[in-house]
Amino acid sequence: MLITRPKPIEEILSMLEMFPETSICVVGCGICARKIQTGGEAQVSMMTARLQQRGLDVMDGKMVRHACSTESWDTMVEENPALDKAGILLVMSCGAGVSLLGRLSGKPTLPALDTTSLGSALKDEVLENFCVMCGECGVGLYGGLCPKSGCPKSQVNGPCGGSIDGDCEIWGRECIWIKIYERLESMGMLHLLDGIRPPVNHDRRL
């Protein structure tokens, strides 16, 4: 799941100012952003109303099933004819959804959200920073807890010296390395942490 956060409204308004007198359609995404309530029906209606209050030419907001995956633009328009009529799409999805809609629609397509990490949703809890898409997954060696994403400094050979009472100095929650160590210890698998891990091979992402 892609984790997204709303952009400040001022940032959205300043992007829209670059396209005066153009009709806007706010588009939500039925998958990740809907699940974590950054781009579902409620957020689309709220954004539409906020822009209308400011006197902008905003059509009724629309939801697409998946902003990042479709057969074609025609398929999307068939489900939501308003997408074709709008001059600008303001998309409440991750960056992949905004990019795909931008490519397919040929219209100015603006992001209303910032994409911050790859995470999960467990019931109503949003779990951020599960993966940094490094291109060389080794999470199995860390008891299912990735230190590249779970540590702001991406430390793969153990914790940094900055934790305060076991909490990460940056994120203020428990240091991922304490969790990794305790989990592997309880599984009797601390030997998985033996040896020095090499740095990420960035060549593999190309």
Partner: peptide, 21 residues
Amino acid sequence: VANPYARPFGPQLLKINKKVS
């Protein structure tokens, strides 16, 4: 470098041992 206050010791020693090796 090492943080002498870091507790629990286990994860900290893991790192220190790797630094020594």
